[in-house]
């Protein structure tokens, strides 16, 4: 049974006003436990609207969402349950911090779940470790933290609910390369330890290529392409038409092939391209 599943979802923004516009037009999607899914598409393609359907923040005008096999609209309790099982981290989540201390802020979700005090404490400390926050930082005001630490604190606030599906909307936006890499590693750590599914909404083809098992490409409120990264990146022309670029490594590989270098298909990460070229050019690794 999929951890979260969407059946033929449609959604209209500002229904009944002059600003009415369809955001989703019949999207079906399923995600198993432990999977790592990348959702790509340019702004306005419906991808951010879609992830807000998965934990019931938005109500579809048609179709339904199942979490652990249960329709999240079947009862109020089911909807509440879905909020906690499908954790959603918004873009620039640091803007949602509000408590006096980082510790208190991270505990907001578990407190809303109605957990006993000792379990809340356990979860807060565990989430802090996953998010790479130190003990000292837990006692600080969230507003004293640096930009990158604030982001981590906000993500910890969702991780503390121990969601089976962790959805992050552009978690690395505005971070520098070092901050980006360590944050993605932290998310991997949570997935490995909890066996949780991770769904990342991203603009970065490099990030999508490097981490995800499966990519879902949104376009005009529909799923335009879906498959493993190598399946999706094979459709270079279609992606370009959607305003999406291939990962830099795939671009370079394409240019090399055009120049007659006999590279295999499906090279879309820097490491894979480098290894293929080392083979072709007769290099070898010292180590």
């Amino acid at each position: 049974m999929p951890a979260v599943q969407a059946e033929n979802i449609s959604y209209v923004y500002s229904a009944g006003t002059p600003f009415e516009r369809p955001a989703l037009r019949g999207v079906s999607f399923a995600c198993e436990k432990g999977e790592y899914v990348g959702i790509i598409g340019h702004t306005g393609s419906g991808k951010s609207t879609f992830v807000q359907q998965l934990n019931g923040l938005l109500t579809p005008s048609e179709g339904r969402v199942l979490v652990g096999g249960v329709d999240i609209r079947s009862s109020k309790a089911a909807l509440r349950e879905a909020r906690f099982r499908v954790g959603l981290v918004f873009q620039f989540p640091e803007y949602q911090l509000f408590e006096e201390t980082v510790y208190r802020d991270i505990s907001f979700g578990p407190r809303n779940m109605g957990l006993p005090a000792d379990e809340i404490d356990e979860r807060v400390r565990e989430a802090a470790v996953f998010a790479g926050l130190s003990e000292a930082e837990l006692g600080k005001s969230p507003f004293e933290l640096s930009g990158g630490q604030k982001r981590r604190a906000a993500i910890a606030g969702v991780i503390a609910m121990r969601p089976e599906v962790l959805i992050l909307d552009e978690p690395t936006a505005g971070l520098d390369p070092a901050g980006r890499d360590s944050l993605l590693a932290n998310i991997d750590g949570y997935r490995d330890r909890q066996g949780a599914a991770v769904i990342i909404v991203t603009h970065s083809m490099e990030e999508a290529a490097r981490r995800a098992d499966r990519l879902v490409v949104f376009m005009d409120g529909l799923v335009a392409l879906e498959g493993t990264p190598s399946e999706v990146f094979r459709h270079a022309a279609a992606l370009r038409e959607m305003g999406l670029a291939l990962p830099a490594a795939a671009q370079i590989a394409g240019k090399l092939k055009a120049r007659g270098v006999p590279l295999p298909d499906g090279l879309y990460t820097s490491a894979a391209l480098r290894d293929a070229l080392v083979g072709l050019l007769g290099g070898s690794y010292a180590s």
Binding site: R83, F84, F108, M113, V158
Partner: peptide, 8 residues
């Protein structure tokens, strides 16, 4: 929305 996602 963000706080609702944390069960507010």
């Amino acid at each position: 929305s963000a706080q609702k996602a944390r069960g507010a």
